[in-house]
Amino acid sequence: MSPIVQVTHLRKLFPVKKSGLFDRNETFVHAVDDVSFTVGRGEVLAVVGESGCGKSTLALTLMGLERPTSGVIQIDGQNIATLNGKEMQVVRRHVQMIFQDPYESLNPIMTIADIVAEPLKVHGLVKNKQERQERVIRALEDAGLKPAVNFMHRLPQELSGGQRQRVVIAGALVLEPELLIADEPVSMLDVSIRAEILNLLLELRQTRGISIVMITHDLGTVGYVADRIAVMYLGRLVEIGPALQVLQQPQHPYTRALLSVVPVPNPRQRRERVILQGETPNPINLPPGCRFHPRCPVARPHCQQHDPQLRLVPVGHEVACLEVTPKELS
């Protein structure tokens, strides 16, 4: 079966305001730069990276909320750049987004029932009130707000953060999407609630076969939910592969550095921490060659000249690093 999402050479550049009236050099922020990946049906792909690496821009571009500068996004085999308004609406119905901040992403003066019913109204999917009511109740209960009638007439500020995030999820589920894009769905929640929400997402994958693209910076939980992990650095994918492999045998020096500072529960287990030096380079003036070389612990002179591409490495996933020997192609 064809993958639900196929992204090829996606770029999104944001023009930077010119400094003066006569400044002719237009500069760009390279938010997403030449990114390619696929998401299979029923798969959970986690996109990991530090803040400012372009994760959220990637999510918004996938949603069609930002136009890609170049490259192709295919959802369900359709290139979303070529769709007209009506066709896009149909695609939108199958792709829904969960936002990071459940305190901000709900309109404070709409009741929970109105919020969850809004997608149905926008898409004109139900004919009468009763059907709408039924679908809203079903979505709320699927999102774990039971019994739904207790919540429907409340306002968002009367709910806890975890409950609000469930409302956001219910609002996404009500359209019965095939793909969920979750932009840091648990980062604003208490640790005790995170597991609940993540379990809910996994459950939805089980029961409905929903594919999920999860944007996160939390490497601690990513192994728990993701099938595959994509590591992003400054708008580029530097490593992508099956979750366990990436976590247990990280190949890219950046992934290794990230993983080495994830706290582990066992205090006796000593590990060598790799603390990265310096700041993330400015995404407007990118360093030449490999983007990571100014901070890379294993950088060599040729890293300044060549920009590495993703290559298959012996352990079986793809890494963009000149220092990692690629798998011999036989």
């Binding site: 896009m88 939108r92 119905r93 936002f99 901000e104 992403s105 309109n107 809004e118 926008v122 359209l175």
Partner: peptide, 17 residues
Amino acid sequence: QRKFVLRARAIGAGNFH
């Protein structure tokens, strides 16, 4: 600027809505 407007866009809502 608030997030629920972005959410409405993600749902597919038009400007008028």
